[in-house]
Design a binder for these strands. Structure first.
Lengths: 86, 86
DNA sequence: AGAAATTTGTTCGTATGTATA
DNA sequence: CTATACATACGAACAAATTTC
């Protein structure tokens, strides 16, 4: 899944993989992405690496986190915004 | 904040700056010093550089690490030692 | 009321590879 | 060749928020 030989750092590869899933509609808006524990196993990387990957998607406003709950795909519809964001 | 032209390496400059704050009472005994992430931004250096700077202060018994919490200024009173150090 | 489980967030310590002086 | 610095990554521990029982 992760190419450790190439020049692209794993955290960027993971960010790209998640972005692809989201834009392909595999993980629709409003749904949660896999938990950090699940992604640790799926990608075979450490928490710190996932943290950076998720931070990239956060900066792109693709996902948002709810502490204690999970990381959710943002609803980027015409009216904009996310459920709960007043 | 950091002079990269001069002969004094950044990690020594940072150690000196932290020592000054501690001895001036800006960061009193028992209190935490800024986290590594915060200091990365404040000083504009990498984690590795901070690691060396903090190691200097540790060798001087000025600070100690509490796992998962942070780096704390040592209480250097007459009876010596740190709270929690049995 | 409260304890346990799950999940995210933050913390330090360390290792590796690369680059520079 | 050594010292210094950076980016990346891994590991472990602790905290806070949320849900479930």
């Amino acid at each position: 899944m992760i190419d450790r030989e190439g020049p692209i750092p794993p955290y960027q590869q993971i960010a790209a993989a998640l972005r692809k899933r989201i834009e392909a509609g595999e993980i629709p808006p409003g749904r949660r992405i896999p938990s950090l524990v699940e992604m640790e196993q799926e990608f075979g990387v450490a928490r710190d690496t996932l943290r950076k990957a998720v931070q990239v998607l956060k900066d792109e406003r693709l996902v948002e986190t709810v502490s204690g709950m999970g990381i959710y795909v943002v609803q980027h519809s015409e009216d904009g915004g996310v459920p709960g964001a007043s």
